[in-house]
Design a protein around this nucleic acid. Sequence first.
RNA 1: GCGCCCUUAGCUCAGUUGGAUAGAGCAACAGCCUUCUAAGCUGUGGGUCGGUGGUUCGAAUCCACCAGGGCGCGCCA
Length: 601
Amino acid sequence: MASDPYARPRAEMLTIFSTVFPEIPWQTLKFQIDPPRDPAHGDLTSNVAFVASARLGRAPREAASILNEALNANLLPTSSIAAADVAGPGFLNITLRPEFKQRAEHEAIREILRAGERCGNSAAGGGKRVNVEYVSANPTGPMHVGHCRGAVVGDALANLLAKAGYAVTKEYYINDAGAQVEALAWAVYWRYLQAIGQPIGAEEFSALVPGGLQYRGEYLIPVGRALAEQYGLALGEPEFLVPSADALAVVRAFAVNEMMRSIREDLALLGVVPDVFSSERALLEAGAADAAIARLGKAGLIYEGTLEPPKGRLPEDWEPRTQTLFRATAFGDETDRPLRKSDGSNTYFANDIGYHADKMARGAEILIDVLGADHSGYVRRMQAAVAALSARRAALEVVLCQIVHVVRAGRPVRMSKRAGSYITLRDLIDEVGRDAVRFTMLTRKADAQMEFDLDQAVAQTRENPVFYVQYAHARCRSVLRAATELLGAAVVAEEALAASPLEALGADPELAVIRRLIAFPRTVEAAAQAREPHRIAFFLYDLAGDFHILWNRGREDSSFRFLNPDRPAETRARLALVAATAAVIRAGLAILGVTPVEEMR
RNA sequence: GCGCCCUUAGCUCAGUUGGAUAGAGCAACAGCCUUCUAAGCUGUGGGUCGGUGGUUCGAAUCCACCAGGGCGCGCCA
């Protein structure tokens, strides 16, 4: 676990303030003592004067002076703090004692080297059990680009939370119970008829299908064939036009299996391997939805009633209807929500309530659903349901992913299902590769729309973040390979470098890299807390930039080269920095699910 | 009509949960390779943070209203 290199100066400051101003509850005041954005603002900077100014009864600038004086007057010779200064409107800028600062920096590097890929691991999550549900694409066809962002964001978020000390379950919900899979069964039956030599035209068959024939894509042809191989004519007898209920059930189960097999394959290609697949149908048959609804009923949150028509936009066929409703308004939703359709069967929402209850019953303390933005209208009601089921103890968090527009050379690549030319996930991975897909999907905040530029994702330039970060890592590895040639593997091993003298480090571009490395654990914790995995991608891009700068210093001025046989101590120190950089890049990429590259030629 | 999300440099986007002079990349111009990877680096220019009010010592960040874009809006999932 990462220790905080600045814990000591923080504690010293607190001690001094507590002694001089015992009447102020410093422990409960929310102020920060952190490395500043701008290194010119000291080693650490604090807004303590702003936060405490009211308690001190002084304006911030004055409060800062008072605190600054108290601080400077009480510093011990052994303190980690050398001096403090008032700056700007009332910041306290702290200069650390050089020995302490250097020791802290060196210790941070050593810690990274000792931890390797585990560097940045945090206990912030306290082992809390988090269930992250993502993808959950309907098992009615191959995965396409629209599913991809949620898959990547959810997977990276799950990895991130695990790194930050949560006990994470990655979960996929199979929507195998609704009207959509029924429609799938009909469509597969249609293909089955073709496979057994009883073909029927799409329009003709559609007239026989309740709701019409929906999934007409060619991807179901092999499913129909496989069905024919396994069952022969048995599913079609005796009519060969409309399947019996039993036959349709067989077809449906078979079709869902096939679709899920294909989805699992696609997910695996993307590096997504859920821990748990939950079946809506299985849950339904086990009575999960009924049980959850019964609980809500017991709590007086279910009633038969009629909803108001939507305001301002009355549907043509609207008529008042009595329905089974969940009192979502009691938990912040804007209207109560129906649980049963007019045919008496459950709505999707009703089954989903059962599912979320099941997740909680399995021990999840935090529920996170990663959903597409087209589900935004669904969020409130599900949160209401989770609040109701847990007596407001558990909360459902929802990460919404906005739409991805795929472009090539700045022009939109159309992916309309009707045109049949939509981009499947497999197409995308084939074209740009798994790592580019994953990293690129994480270069935007999830709830901002993004353009996925196919050309940029494979470009070998700085404008392609995947490449830029991979290149930095490859360069690190390149140096370490060269060092191994020169000095032997024993010297270059991470354990050996962790024990190296590091006093030779201290040039500006080196310090920039070090500062960034030290920020990694903080970045992981903040990103996890904000549920924003994209911050890791940006961190890596910045770190890569710092490293490329350092690299180029060696080109301009050979005294900055990492390897200098005449100066063994300096060489080992720099190798330690390079190895630590590589370790942090690997650790960060592991969160994103991207493979580090050893060499690029 | 109502709800949620978004609006930051010419373009694509960050902005460490309210901190100091708002940052990167692309595009434009000018430089750096007998050396560990020039697929890189350095420098220059570019902004009423959609608008107006408010809260605050301090607002791109929080609140209200307005404008523009996206998504959704009783039996679909």
